[in-house]
Design a protein around this nucleic acid. Structure first.
Length: 368
RNA sequence: GGUUGGGUAUCCAAGUGGCUAAAGGGCGCGGACUGUAAAUCCGUUCAUCGUAGAUGUUCGUCGGUUCGAAUCCGACCCCCACCA
């Protein structure tokens, strides 16, 4: 259940109540595709103030299999995470693994990227798999359209995504109503009118909540924000709005201003593993020689377990290719994103989100 | 002392007459990354001129053969293995 608590110049402060806990929005969800937020323990994720994490239907169904996860007590127990989990449907893999799949009206047939085994995911089985995994939020099967995409092809794809959403909704309604939610996904590529039609059609279906998909697939940032705006404005106010797969700190703040409530992105954890850290003055690359003797923590204003260490030490770990570098930077970056969301919530409550966010972005863009 | 094999750029290593400033790696330096086939990928890495390109100095050392040598010849210095 989603409750809208306050609005401030387009930004929304909300509360999502799920079987495994309450999520305060706006919120960022760390990505744990394979039932792990890479390099972090559940306790560490928790200490970064994560309220909900994301996992993936396609990956978990290929390995270890949703039936096994169910037998072992569900995803929460399996991975030792007792707060909410959102599972993505595998629709994005239709995009990222486009060479390994075939889409028909029935669903998506994948050729496993691990062993070539055939895996068919239909709208119905997609919901069933996510039910077996036990996630708090399930995503409908959608087709993430590449960029660029010709308009008529986009239109046809979106129509199918809507039909799939209807089938997913039916599958969702056939399951016990235990507080678990299923989100529909607005697609439409760069075409505002298609996005508008899609959002309206899905809104009519009265899903528990909604997502905006198909963004940040190669289009410029302004285009991406335009797509989000074109989608969110036609979604019901009393439902959560999750923008999938994004974004940078700047994008997050700007999307919050467009009325988005939830986000996920691999960026903080992936960049961490690649030696980069987010700071209030932009991204820094710890591999750079200039940090060799830097005794200060990554960012004085971001508190996490990683604050205990100097840039010089973390740089050493990165350069030496030590596993701990991945962990410490993932902790830092995850805490950074979640702290940003906490501040955003606070400023929406205060009522100065716009001014604060403008100032925050200016500082972020100013560089070191 | 003898017999083999070997000494190539910061390290490992290919190259046995011209297409070689010299393959590949590593290290170093820099960059990319957005619902994770990603602890990955890309660039760069002798010196000087901003890049293109040009010039200079290189393949243990010294000398030689040749129009031309990292590559052939001689001497010498090191290293490894085996023999004694």
């Amino acid at each position: 259940m989603f409750e809208l608590l306050k609005e401030d110049a387009g930004a929304r402060r909300g509360r999502l109540t799920l079987p495994n806990g309450v999520v305060q929005t706006p919120i960022f969800m760390p990505v744990g595709t394979q039932a792990t937020v890479k390099s972090m323990t559940a306790a560490q994720i928790h200490d970064c103030n994560a309220q909900i994490i994301l996992s993936n239907t396609y990956h978990l169904n290929i390995r270890p299999g949703s039936a096994l996860v169910e037998r072992l007590g569900g995803l929460h127990k399996f991975m030792g995470w007792n707060k909410p989990i959102l599972t993505d449907s595998g629709g994005f893999q239709a995009f990222s693994l486009s060479k390994l799949r075939k889409i028909t009206e029935d669903g998506i047939t994948f050729k496993s990227h691990l062993d070539g085994a055939k895996l068919f995911i239909s709208p119905e089985s997609c919901i069933q798999i996510q039910k077996e995994l036990g996630s708090d939020i399930r995503m409908v099967l959608d087709e993430c359209i590449p960029y660029p995409c010709e308009k008529s092809a986009c239109q046809k794809s979106v129509e199918r995504t809507i039909r799939w959403a209807q089938r997913c909704l039916k599958a969702h309604q056939d399951l016990p109503q235990d507080g678990k939610m299923t989100f529909a996904i607005v697609q439409g590529g760069v075409y505002d009118d298609i996005r508008q039609d899609c959002a309206k059609a899905l809104a009519q279906l009265d899903f528990p909540s909604y997502a905006v998909g198909g963004v940040s697939v190669g289009e410029p940032e302004e285009e991406m924000l335009k797509q989000v705006a074109a989608s969110t404005q036609f979604l019901p106010k009393n439902k959560a709005r999750y923008v999938m797969g994004v974004g940078t700190p700047r994008q997050l703040l700007r999307m919050i201003a467009l009325g988005a409530d939830m986000f996920d992105c691999v960026m903080p954890t992936r960049l961490a593993r690649h030696g980069n850290a987010f700071t209030t003055r932009g991204i820094i690359n710890l591999k750079n020689a200039k940090y060799k003797e830097d005794e200060s923590p990554i960012d004085e204003s971001v508190k996490s377990y990683a604050s205990n260490f100097s840039k010089a030490y973390i740089r050493h770990l990165v350069v030496a290719n030590e596993i701990l570098a991945c962990t410490l930077l993932s902790i830092h970056n995850t805490a950074f994103f979640l702290q940003l969301m906490q501040e955003a919530r606070t400023h929406i409550e205060i009522g100065d989100f716009h001014a604060w966010s403008k100032n925050w972005i200016a500082n972020y863009d100013s560089g070191e």
